[in-house]
Each structure stands twice: as structure tokens, then as C-alpha cells.
Write a protein that binds this DNA or RNA. Sequence first.
DNA 1: GTGAAAGCGCTAACAT
DNA 2: ATGTTAGCGCTTTCAC
Lengths: 345, 345
Amino acid sequence: MEPPAAPRRVTIVDVARHANVSTTAVSKVLRNAYGASPEMRAKVRRAIDELGYRPLAAARGLRGQTYTIGVMLPDIRNPFFPEILDGVTGCLEGTDYQVLLGPGGNGEKEEVRVTDAMIDRGMDGLVLVAPVSPRDRLEHVASAVPTVVVGRHGHSPVYDTVADDDRAGAALVVRHLAELGHRRIAHIEHHETDPTRATEMPNAQRADGYRRAMRDLGLDGEIDVVSTSYTQQGGYEGAKQLLARPHRPTAVFAGADIVAMGVLEAVAEAGLSVPGDLSVAGYDNTTFAALGQISLTSVDQAGQEIGRNAARLLLERIADRGRRSVQVRLSPTLVARRTTDRPPA
Amino acid sequence: MEPPAAPRRVTIVDVARHANVSTTAVSKVLRNAYGASPEMRAKVRRAIDELGYRPLAAARGLRGQTYTIGVMLPDIRNPFFPEILDGVTGCLEGTDYQVLLGPGGNGEKEEVRVTDAMIDRGMDGLVLVAPVSPRDRLEHVASAVPTVVVGRHGHSPVYDTVADDDRAGAALVVRHLAELGHRRIAHIEHHETDPTRATEMPNAQRADGYRRAMRDLGLDGEIDVVSTSYTQQGGYEGAKQLLARPHRPTAVFAGADIVAMGVLEAVAEAGLSVPGDLSVAGYDNTTFAALGQISLTSVDQAGQEIGRNAARLLLERIADRGRRSVQVRLSPTLVARRTTDRPPA
DNA sequence: GTGAAAGCGCTAACAT
DNA sequence: ATGTTAGCGCTTTCAC
């Protein structure tokens, strides 16, 4: 009546014995490495199947690879990130790599913890999605393990980047609203104090894109930015401020869909209608935006495309750690829905 | 001009040499194990800090633990799961364990792949969230590594379970609607063919809870179940069917919030109003439900509580693999919002 | 093409 | 309380 201890795992030695070959031979078959005859391969594969052998990734990692790709997501709740993840896993399908996710937590401390953990676990490559850590830290990580940084602008020789052109996305929104006839187009941005991040983060690029687009349209005088945060609460508060303006805007470009949700709430509370009294646009084209009840005009980032590119670059870098760093920039598209229309007469 | 190969990692040997002690001593300090004097500990810790040493989890795992807990999520997109995750990570905070997520993919094949991958990576324990795999498979996994199954009914001697009482949750909705005066209360369920899952999955329990509650209220004759799927599309189609009934229901209990979203869309399309013409309730109290624009009556599962319990049970089982299996059942609560009201006169 | 043997970084027995 | 030594399961020389 002993406690049901875990039964001993089948090891490479068992397989070798069962197939009457050396462990080296088995290892070669596992890795599709050079130096094993077809007959040998067949024999070994049969033994593997018969014994139900699975190589222990941890042990492999001690000498070679762990066949594990780590993806750090800063916030599981953001409905945009699953798209990226789908792209990554899709690209890795058919390879021997397995994707594991590290829950980031939107803070530098949490990011350090999770990236260190991934390095300590011998992961072969990392995809960092919209990291908030300073550049040095990212480079530190990238020097320990092949890394692709996603959704953050600013280059580095040690890691590759994939990002949407957030400035262009913001311009799409502004032009769309201007074409509808709006002039007083306000923007709600995410407040950023850190100097590096103030240029590298998507939110900063969106705000910048908004300003540039306004200027390009000759609307310099109408530029109106409220600085809160990329949260529903931030959108609510930002909208409150904008609605209290003596001469209030006819359109609001919220820096993220979740912000737009807060705006919609504040507008409803003020007894105003969308888009009758105010047009509202978001960013990210999240699930919310597509809901029939919401039908929010938004900017679609090619999430899957981003993920696919990230995975591809990562595999390339794993294969050649010394290669020059690559920057991929993708173009977002506008998805016009029912929250934007012509301004009130 | 050689390619910048990864600099050699600091190992336990380096630390031992630097501190003038044995590797055993360092190992003991790392694991807070018995047999190291305070002075020794101090010395070793200093060396660790000075060298920036971090133990390699893969190597530790080869003999002992990897200090990694794997959480399998079937669907990253489901906004309910982050709650569970928060509970798990919260409970593990302060311990040496790191949580890594395995993207499930809502299919048996994907689940096998990701659970195998987690086992192969030497994880110390697994939390499986709402797995769809058959019981045998779950027991197979659990026999390889300590496992807690979350959000699935049905016990097993080899794994612990944590779940909300979905029957009770469904009853909460039915009683709420009945108290408002509804009698013709319909339900949209997720179609399930597999016999094991037909009893063990939450959706099945919700449908069952609906039927029981209707009977308990003497509404046997009004029981009306449409069988589609737990998707927005499923809700849309289900609602279409219900609205086409000669004597249509006055209230719809959708088995999940996302289903309710589809219902709302179909209702709006039919030119009807909620809750004026039809009351709608969901399940899961997701982010959607709470949005001011939606304000959906829903059932709140204590997600964080579920996660905390799962983590606690897992730690207990890691400490004692032989202990009897435990089942924790938590109680959901109703969150009444604006989509439910008295039936039309 | 094949296999023996060394060793990856750590922990666990076993001395001392 | 401390150190020595033998592995854990795999990959990688390097013989043959």
C-alpha cells in the first residue's frame, strides 16, 4: 500500500535497449540529425512508439535546445493579444517548438520576473509583446536568448522588432473623421512619463500620429489632447473633461477601444447620442468593437500577421544568432462602423 | 569578429568557488534546505548577488523540482479565465513557483499536445482549466504530474477539482426571472454529444440546473431549450429560433455571456427591445456584461476564488502526492443588471 | 554509419 | 555543519 509515486518515465536508454542500438542513435533520430540509416531510423521510431517514449525537454535543454518558445503577454485581458498569439502558434505549427505563455502583468517588476523565469527555463527564444521595460533590460534579455520585441517602436542591434505603424493608424482615424466633416477632433491618450517609452510605446506614437495628421489637414488650431490612461475609467474621465469644454469637440479619437468604451458611457450619461452629437473612434478593433450593440469604428492591427512575422524572425535568429537585426513594420486598416458619422449640423 | 554567442551562464560552481564553499552548500541555500549555518547562508547569498547567479530550472528539474506550475487555458479569448489565473498567481506569489500558461485551443488534440508538452518540460504541477479531454486522458496526465482540474464536474481519485456550482447558478437565473414575473423562460445551451462531457461539462450542468429550477417552480410545461453552441453565432441563431416561436418566450437564459451577446443582436435586428419585449440573462459575468452599453444580467463565478483554491490544492498535492483527492465546489452569485425586467404586460 | 564516453548544471546520498 | 561523489536524461565530441 505505498503511495502512488509517479511511475518512472521511459528514457532514451530504454528506447535504445529496446531497439538494440545506442542512445546516440536514438538521439540522432529524435533530432533528425545526420548519421543514421533509414533502417536505423525505422527501428528506432518503432521502439519509440512501442514504449510511448517522449524526450524530456528539460534534459535536452541541458545540452541542446528545449524546443520551447516563450511569449510574454503584458495583459491577458487585452483582446488584441490572442490574435498575435494565434499568428505565432500558427507559424510554429508543424515545427517541434511548443509555445508557452508568460503572464506579464503590465509592470516592470513583473516583466523582469517573467522574462528571467523564461530564460532560467532554458527557452530557445522569446517573443515579448508590448513590453514596458526600459531598453537596457530588453537588450539584456535579448543577449541571453534570441528575442523578438512586438508592438514597440525603436530599434536595437540585438533584437528584432515587429510592429504596426501606429502613427499611420492614428492618421487613418483623423482623416476618416475629417472626411466626414469633423474639425474639432479630440484625442484621449495614455499618459506616459518615462522618456524612452514616451517615444517607443504605441500609445505615444498614436498621439503623435494624431497631432501630425491634424497639422497635415490644417487643423493645428483644433488639436485637443486629454491625457488619462488606456482604461475604461481613463476614457470615462477623459470624455467628462472634453464634454465640459465651452466649445466641445464633435469627434473623439480614443487611443484604444477600451478607452472608447469609457467615452461611450460618459456620453450616454450626459444624455448625448453617438454618433448624433458626438462621433467616437477607438483603436485595436477588439471584440467589443465588433459587437453589434457597440459597433465601434476602430483601427485593425494585423495581429495574426504580427505574430507570424515575430515567429518567423525568431526562428531565423535561433538559426543564426549573429545575423543583423530586422525591423518589420505593418500597416493597420480602418474599420468604419456606426459610432462615427457626420458632425451635428 | 565572431558572432555574439550567448555568454556562458554563471553556474553553481562559479558561486561555490567565489564563496569558497562546496556546490552542495550553495544548493542548500538555494532550496532553504537544512544543514547550512547562518554565516554560510550569508556568504553564499552575497556571492550569488555579486555574480548575478540564477539557477537553471531545467537542470534543477533533472534531479528535483523545476519550480514551474503549468496552467492550461482552453481559450485565451474567454474573459473569464484571466480571473482564475489571477487567483492562481496570487496564491503562488511569494513562493518560488513560476506560472506558465499553455494555450489549449479548445480541442482534444490541442489539449494532448499542450499537456504532454508541460509534462515533458518537467513542470511540478498542472492546473487544467475546463479541459475537454475524456476522463482517461485527465487521469493519465494526473498520474504523471500533480494535477488540479478546474471548471469541470465529476471526481477522480487521482486529481483534485475546483468548480463553481453551475446548477445552482442556472437556478439563480431562473428564480430571478420567475420573481420578475416570467413564466416562459427559454434556455440556449451548448450542444454536447460526448457522453462523459454531457455530464461533466459546465454547460451541461447549466442546462440541467435550468430544467430542475423550472420544475421546482412548477414551470415544467414551459421548459424550452434550444441547442446551439457557446458562441455569439450560437446565441444569434438560438434567438432567431426562439423569436420565431408562435408563442415566444418572455425571457431567455443564455448559457454564457457571449451567447447573450448574440441574442441581443438578433433581438435588435427583429426590432424588439430589451428588456421591454424580452429579458436576457447570460452567464460568467464577463467584461462585456459589465459594460455600461450592454449592462447584461449575468452569473458571477468566483473566478479568483477558484484560482486560489486550485493553487492551494496543487501545492498540497505536490507536497503529498498520495493524499486523498479533494473536491471544492464554490457558489456563484447573480448580478442583476438592465437586460432583465418584468415581462411585457 | 555507429557507439562509447564525457559532460550540461544541478540535487541527493553519503561520507566526514 | 560541511564536502565528496554519483547520477538525473539527454546531446555531443570523437573514436571506430
